[in-house]
């Protein structure tokens, strides 16, 4: 429970169609691995990586879909307390790009309105099979006010950058929010604090 371990803790959530490489991105970043097969993540809820940015320790808690995207059955609660969302598609798969609006709808519906969304086109190592041009993706992400990045989990291209840039943005957002929060009206967690030690029980 030691708050001393880090200066910031952020919850990052990955979404996107099955097979676009979400788990690979997470494992590449957190463990430096490129897993050849799937299924290695049974029992793992999220992965943790602590990074240092400008001398500050930032703990990233990165959540994967647990396969629920396979039949479009992601639970709403998955989105709830995310600070950032990484919306991933596969540049070699048109279908995964065409599904993005549906994913955005879910975000709009269930995620916090302060969430930062990054659009990621993965698998740029398979350039010869590309189906979605960079320009189209850029236009789309611009229209949706999202950051955009192309990555290769396999070649480790832009993976560090993706998470580190995100961490930077989250830090600056967090700073701004703490300023805003002083004036803002009720948010979850506000209200009088209850000391759990002072027991109001009858014994």
């Amino acid at each position: 429970m030691s708050m001393e371990d880090y200066d910031f803790l952020f919850k990052i959530v990955l979404i996107g169609n099955a097979g676009v490489g979400k788990t690979c991105l997470v494992r590449r970043f957190t463990q430096g691995l490129f897993p050849p097969g799937q299924g290695a993540t049974i029992g793992v809820d999220f992965m943790i990586k602590t990074v240092e940015i400008n001398g500050e320790k930032v703990k990233l808690q990165i959540w994967d879909t647990a396969g629920q995207e396979r039949f479009r059955s992601i639970t709403q609660s998955y989105y709830r307390s995310a600070n950032a969302l990484i919306l991933t598609y596969d540049i070699t798969c048109e279908e995964s790009f065409r599904c993005l609006p549906e994913w955005l709808r879910e975000i709009e519906q269930y995620a916090s309105n302060k969430v930062i969304t990054v659009l990621v086109g993965n698998k740029i190592d398979l350039a010869e099979k590309r189906e979605v041009s960079k320009q189209r993706a850029e236009e789309f992400s611009e229209a949706q006010n999202m950051y955009y990045l192309e990555t290769s989990a396999k070649e480790s291209d832009n993976v560090e950058k993706l998470f580190l840039d995100l961490a930077c943005r989250l830090i600056s957002e967090a700073r701004q929010n703490t300023l805003v929060n002083n004036v803002a009206s009720p948010l979850p967690g506000e209200g009088k604090s209850i000391s759990y030690l002072t027991c109001c029980n009858f014994n």
Binding site: I42, A66, G67, R70, F71
Partner: peptide, 8 residues
């Protein structure tokens, strides 16, 4: 799901 359950 985290432990491998499939959801539809």
């Amino acid at each position: 799901a985290v432990f491998g359950g499939i959801y539809c």
